[in-house]
Each structure stands twice: as structure tokens, then as C-alpha cells.
Amino acid sequence: MTAVEALVEEQIVYQRPESLLEVPTHYCPGCTHGIAHRIVAEVLDELGVRERTIGVSPVGCSVLAYKYFNMDGAEAAHGRAPAMATGIKRVMPDHVVFTYQGDGDLAAIGIGEIIHTATRGENITTIFINNAIYGMTGGQMAPTTLPGQRTTSSVTGRDVETTGFPIRMAEMLAGMTGSAYVVRRSLHNVKEINRAKQAVRVAFQAQLAGLGFSMVELLSSCPTNWGMSAPEAMKWIEDNMVPYYPLGDYKVADAVQPLLKRK
């Protein structure tokens, strides 16, 4: 077989999804933001909805997400992405609208917006990156920072006596009647990444079916601000985050059930 013949016979098994632009991202090595982007892009491709999707970026490390996704996008103020997405969805109900938010953005400054968006059953999808820290501003304590976890603003470790306890957002939003699909997944290994992708697919399918608010919380790494190597960071998610933030389905509305089986 000649080299050319070999090329012809090659099958594409992996390529850049159309929903991602061919640009280098600014994310640190070992950061799972990139994996989360890829998952979202693959799902939008597979659902064939790229051309009618509008993404809303947060303030946080993923502030430039609109430069990586190949679709219309807006950049919201810190924490306000769900409100902005609501405005977009209400006048473009046939479009797919999603927010992509970090834990400072969603669980601190924007907790009011996300709760009310969920409780209204706003028909949008939220991808929630929980990395237990403020990445962009250099590693301060987040609402999701674990007890005892050291950050630049909890230097001796998060003291729950003075700073309270980490917020479990998936559990909280599952309690909203308007939520259709709220789950937590992790990005720390291939198996979990695959499961995360399936959840992201169900979330967007729920939106396409008009079933209400959907959120996938993704346990994510921030090796830079955790002060770890990439493998250490993955292990840290598994050993420390997963026990505090159990993976699982927190809300699967009856109408969403058939989507799970279809796969």
C-alpha cells in the first residue's frame, strides 16, 4: 500500500467540532475549561443547532469563551449571564441559548440571577464550571472553596466558622420547581468526561424540547491557582471535590426521563 492509498483509507475519528473555532485558547495547561468547551461544542454539532445557538459568556477565566465558540455570542456582566440569556431567549424562543459560568460568577455575585432563572423554568441551559476557586483574579476563595482549602484570601485554609460552608449549587437548583434537569458531573478522567458529555447532551435536548431550565455542574480543575500539576489536580478533584460534591442526577423532571433512555 502506498502512502497515498493509506491516506485515502484513513477515517476521521477525531477533529475539531464545527462549533469551536480554530484558535488557541488562553487556558492554562491542565485546565478543564478547554474540555468543557469541547464537550459543549461536540454536543451542539451533534444536535445540529450551531447556527441557531447563542452563547452567553461570564466574567471569569471563560470571559473570552465567545472567541472560541463558532456561534453568536454575548459577554455578560459578572454574574448576570442568566438574566441576559433570559432576555435573549424570551425574544428568540426558537434559538438555543446557554450560559457558561464559573463558581464565583454563578454561586456568589450571580446567585440571585441563577436561582430566579431556574425557578422561572427559563428554557435555557447553564454549564457551571465548579473549580472551587476564583481563577481569573488569581486564586481567591470562592463560595465553593472546600473547608480547609488554601486560597489567596483564605491563607490558612477556609475556616467555616468565619466564612461559612461551600455551596452545593446542583442540590440547591434541583429544589427549584422550574428546573427540568440538574446534574453534577466531573471532568477529572475520561470516563467522567464521557458521562459529562452525555449530561450536556440531555441538557440541550431538554431545552430543545422546551422542558425548562437545565444545568450541568462540572467539577473542574484550576491547577494554576491550586498550585498543582495537571495530574495532581485531577487527583485532587477525585479525592477532595467529589466527596464534598457527589456526582449524580439531582433533578430529572418526568418529561426529561425519555431523553435519558434514548441516548
Binding site: 454575548a74 455578560a76 441576559m84 432576555g87 440571577e113
Partner: peptide
């Protein structure tokens, strides 16, 4: 047409911002 009583003025203006991004009068 779209009407929402938002949870705050912060949310209201960001909803307006979102809707207006689509070219709608908001």
C-alpha cells in the same frame, strides 16, 4: 410580547441587554 417581573433591577437591565442584543426593542 415578552414581559418579566424580574427579581431585581440588576436582573431587569441585564434582561433588557440580552433582548436588545437580538435587535428587539427592549
Amino acid at each position: 410580547r415578552a414581559f418579566i417581573q424580574a427579581e431585581s433591577e440588576v436582573a431587569s437591565i441585564n434582561m433588557v441587554y440580552g433582548a436588545a442584543c437580538t435587535g428587539a426593542r427592549a
